[in-house]
Design a protein around this nucleic acid. Structure first.
Length: 749
RNA sequence: GGGUGAUUAGCUCAGCUGGCUAGAGCGUCACAUUGACAUUGUGAAGGUCACAGGUUCAAGUCCUGUAUCACCCACCA
């Protein structure tokens, strides 16, 4: 009767989204009111705090598709009578954003130092807000039914306050402390990094064999092999294996470090591998984690020769000062060769640590940083995992997480950045004094003044708080410059967000039900959220972790901007629509496995979306205006078909609850296309052939068909919300349905 | 060095607690079709489920081992 377009136009998706927004039923409080009004039993709230994407760029396909998992489960739960809260947010992404925005400034010929800390922070904030807006639009474009009235940014002052509380509590309990040890320094980002923020890469390098003459008999020498000759300037020992007969006679003697002209001892340690290199190893405690351990064990001196920018410094010959490490290495090799102390150089490939963000080589250096002793937290988290209070899907990832907890090391939480939450600490008499006293246990402020030669205007104590503390006479307080590691705040995301939104939200919606995110951040994020959540709330922040697969380029390689094989979400939306993309993702991106993006597969799903539109169109167009009243009575008899539909709906529901979205997606496609369309509609055509409009037969056939269609739209809606809602609204226009499909309740009994 | 996962049709993959005469999508081939849908329908071809053992009435599915690949973790100069 009514002329509907011949094919489904996915451009309508934007209009449909605004319909949902207008309904405000993405707000769980409104949804609860709605259910009460409808006289439906209100079930317990269902909450997922959504992973906040970095607010320094647009979303990529992985983000966007990831949200379709949140959304399918959220929509399903909503249609089951749970007030659902999908809580969105955006992440300030400390180091990454600082680097992105600094580059952005560079292009305009500016530096962050010119702007100053406050202005830099302000501009970066603005930059993030702009990106957040784009990201939000993209989230809506995939159909994410999140409650945007509650959206939070990780640097929101309400959140920062909660993060600070955690810090104070941890400090008071002795979990947080300052320590001087070897850290991973990224010379480019110019900040310390936690171990987890680094990656390993195979790189070509050299293996140089250098002769260290004995101090008391220069004609004898020990040859050491190294991949980093420049660190020899900071050597404080040579280590050999205690049972290595080649070197036994040298143990306890001294060698003369060439060029640096320093005498260092030959020590014996079990850790030394006699097979590797020459069996004698140079020890550089300040610039190698292994050597640092050795130095602790043997009480060796620590000599710093590389600074935080990766340049040579310290007690070294003038000519090397300020050189980059590689440059220095070359210069040293040349000089050693001239002195006849270079035995040979081999080319090798070795593993080097690089910055996870900018892929610059990590410089291990000695530095004072803030640490969190995560061991006790990890133990609790591990126990909860083992008690199945938190489950990880797929199972294999759970074991990886358990392993992570079992082997956890202190977490360096301070970063030398401007973009982030400033650590709320004040030092009486300055940070330098505090660190000096820490290193020189038992000494006093007076000793500091004498030995360092600086007047200390303070007691060397700490004050915890944001605002400058009151000073007694002459006392000067220095504010901590460092900020928290991003993950220190995002690690508190589930409870911090809900708490920031108010006592009531926390009570109603915490703990949350599940966490869904990509595999690559499981240690960074989920691992931390469980620990911090337990610490602050004594409850696990979520019961299930669902780890999504990664989207790959069509040749199976990783998508990356540099390879120019990445696909913009917009391109897919424009061409095939969000529903088609979602349906493809459910089917192909199984947890733990990767999904190469094949356009023809999305196209196949788009065909199905269109099929839904057309089957509905057929039914709608065949119902005569005069028959609407009769049909809308929905006087439905229990038939074989209605029973089949009921079973089908139940089955799909089970799949969703077991997180088997691929089976759910397959199931709805199979049922709608090959049962409803290919068989039932074809049958109906024959049944009504020749029947006059308004006949009992026609009313019966179309009543049943309409019922079947509506039940199918409902169960398909969580997967493909747009087209199903579009059809539903056409039915509403004809008085054949009511309200929004999003809020309809499934019949699951 | 340790861990996890994968290996099933030409391609991408499903197959939950063992019952399969092994499935889907895309591709291929044949036929049909102005149909609600030129974004359709019907049908066909195509697989000793990596390999070798074992448990079982029964194994793609469980166990052991082997091989190849992928990812993660790890301080080896």
């Amino acid at each position: 009767m009514e002329e509907l377009p011949k094919s489904y136009n996915s451009e309508a998706e934007i209009k449909i989204y605004s319909l949902w927004e207008k309904s405000s039923l993405t707000n769980p409080d409104r949804m609860k009111e709605y259910l009460e009004k409808e006289g439906v039993e209100v079930k317990s709230p269902f909450t997922i705090t959504l992973p906040p994407p970095n607010a320094n760029a647009n979303l990529h396909l992985g983000h966007v598709c990831g949200y379709s998992f949140h959304d399918v489960i959220g929509r399903y739960m909503r249609m089951k009578g749970h007030p659902v809260l999908l809580l969105p947010g955006k992440d300030h992404a400390g180091i990454q954003t600082e680097s992105v925005f600094t580059k952005h400034l560079e292009k305009e010929g500016k530096t962050k130092e010119e702007l100053g800390r406050e202005e830099f922070f302000r501009q970066t904030y603005e930059f993030c807000m702009k990106n957040a807006k784009n990201a939000r639009e993209q989230e809506k474009r995939i159909g994410l039914s999140a409650d945007y009235s509650r959206e939070l940014f990780t640097l929101d002052p309400r959140l920062t306050e909660i993060i600070y509380e955690t810090f104070f509590k941890m400090f008071k309990e002795g979990l947080i402390y300052r320590d001087k040890r070897i850290i991973n320094q990224c010379p480019k980002c110019n900040t310390a990094l936690a171990d987890i923020d680094t990656e390993h890469e195979s790189k070509r390098g050299i293996f140089a064999y250098i002769r260290y003459p004995l101090a008391d008999s220069p004609e004898e020498y020990i040859t050491v092999a190294t991949t980093r000759p420049e660190t020899m300037l900071g050597d404080t020992a040579v280590a050999v294996h205690p049972e290595d007969s080649r070197y036994a006679k040298y143990i306890g003697k001294k060698v003369l470090l060439p060029i640096a002209e320093r005498e260092v001892p030959v020590i014996a340690d079990e850790e030394v591998d006699t097979e590797l290199g020459t069996g004698a190893v140079k020890v550089t405690p300040a610039h190698s984690p292994v050597d640092f351990e050795l130095a602790q064990k043997h009480g060796l001196e620590i000599v710093n020769v590389i600074n935080e920018k990766g340049l040579m410094e310290g007690d070294i010959p003038e000519r090397f000062k300020g050189m980059e490490t590689v440059e220095c290495s070359k210069a040293l090799v040349k000089e050693l060769n001239e002195l006849g102390l270079l035995e040979k150089i081999e080319n090798t490939v070795h593993e080097v640590m690089v910055c996870e963000r900018c892929r610059t080589d990590i410089q291990p250096i000695i530095s004072n940083q803030w640490y969190l002793n995560v061991k006790p937290l990890a133990e609790k988290a591990l126990k909860e995992l083992q008690r199945n209070k938190v489950k990880v899907y797929p199972k294999g990832q759970q074991r990886a997480l358990e392993h992570f907890y079992a082997n956890i090391q202190p977490w360096c939480i301070s970063r030398q950045l401007w973009w982030g939450q400033r650590i709320p600490v004040w030092y009486s008499g300055g940070k330098k004094l505090y660190d000096w006293l820490l290193e020189n246990k038992g000494k006093t402020v007076g000793d500091f003044e004498k030995e360092v030669g600086i007047k200390a205007n303070g007691s060397g104590e700490l004050f915890l708080g944001e605002e400058e503390p009151k000073s007694s006479k002459g006392e000067i307080w220095e504010k901590e410059e460092d900020v928290f590691d991003t993950w220190f705040s995002s690690g508190q995301w589930p409870f911090s967000t809900l708490e920031a939104l108010g006592e009531e939200d926390l009570k109603k919606y915490y703990p949350t039900q599940m966490m869904i995110h990509a595999r690559d951040i499981i240690f960074w994020w989920s691992a931390r959220m469980i620990m911090m959540g337990l610490y602050r709330t004594e409850e696990v922040p979520f019961k299930d972790i669902f780890v999504t697969g990664m989207i790959l380029a069509d040749d199976g390689s990783k998508m990356s901007k540099s390879k120019e094989n990445s696909v913009e979400p917009k391109a897919i939306f424009d061409k095939y629509g969000a529903d088609a993309l979602r349906l493809w993702y459910y089917s192909d991106a199984l947890p733990g496995s990767n999904a190469p993006l094949r356009e023809e597969k999305i196209k196949g799903n788009r065909n199905f979306i269109n099929k839904i539109w057309n089957a509905s169109r057929f039914i709608i167009m065949n119902i005569d205006k005069s028959e609407i009243l009769e049909i809308s009575k929905n006087d439905i008899k229990e038939t074989e078909k209605t029973e089949r539909v009921k079973d089908h709906v139940l089955q799909v529901g089970k799949y969703i609850e077991k997180y088997q979205f691929n089976l759910g997606a397959e199931s709805i496609r199979e049922f709608f296309w090959h049962e409803l369309c290919d068989i039932w509609i074809e049958e109906a055509k024959k049944q009504v052939e020749g029947e006059p409009v308004g006949s009992v037969k026609r009313i019966e056939v179309f009543t049943e068909l309409l019922y079947v269609l509506k039940e199918n739209l409902k169960i398909m809606h969580p997967f493909i919300p747009f087209v199903t809602e579009a059809v539903w609204q056409e039915l509403v226009n004809l008085d054949l349905a009511e309200g929004v499909l999003m809020a309809q309740q499934l019949r699951l009994i």
